[in-house]
């Protein structure tokens, strides 16, 4: 059994987690988290670290030239740059609604890239 310490990155509370890991590398318990998301995060971080990815894509006809987008769920940490490449050539046209799918099944990860805000058409 060993203790691993880490900081939960899910929200800005930045809870300090203490995780008991047994000799086979399996997580036995998570402490220090203020909510259940911290527990889920700790288990993933020790097995398959994932991250939410946020970026922007080009948009025309809207108040600004960039539409903020977010992954519909967390992706393997090592895939962030691949997904960024897929976003580089995307161009959308306003109006867009929050949660509209911008890219389906991006990089075959089984998750979508979605709009993180609505943008109306402006003239």
């Amino acid at each position: 059994m060993k203790k691993v310490e880490m900081i939960c990155i899910v929200c800005p509370m930045s809870c300090r987690l203490v995780i008991d890991v047994d000799d086979a590398g399996a997580v036995q318990s998570v402490a220090g988290n203020s909510c259940n998301r911290g527990d889920i995060y700790a288990r993933k971080e020790l097995t398959n670290p994932t991250r939410m990815l946020t970026s922007t894509v080009k948009i025309s006809g809207a108040i600004y030239d960039r539409l903020p987008v977010i992954t519909s769920s967390d992706i393997p940490k090592g895939m962030m740059f691949e997904v960024m490449k897929a976003l580089a050539n995307i161009e959308v046209v306003a109006p867009v609604k929050a949660n509209d799918i911008i890219i389906e099944n991006v990089c075959n990860l089984g998750i979508n890239i979605i709009a993180s805000r609505s943008m109306e058409q402006v003239h």
Binding site: P12, P68, I70, A98, S116
Partner: peptide
């Protein structure tokens, strides 16, 4: 602030800044 991590407590969801504002 297009990054995520907003609203985990207010809306029980992990939103981006613009998503929270909306």
């Amino acid at each position: 602030c297009i990054h995520n991590g907003f609203g985990v407590h207010t809306f029980k969801e992990e939103l981006s800044g613009p998503g929270f504002a909306e």
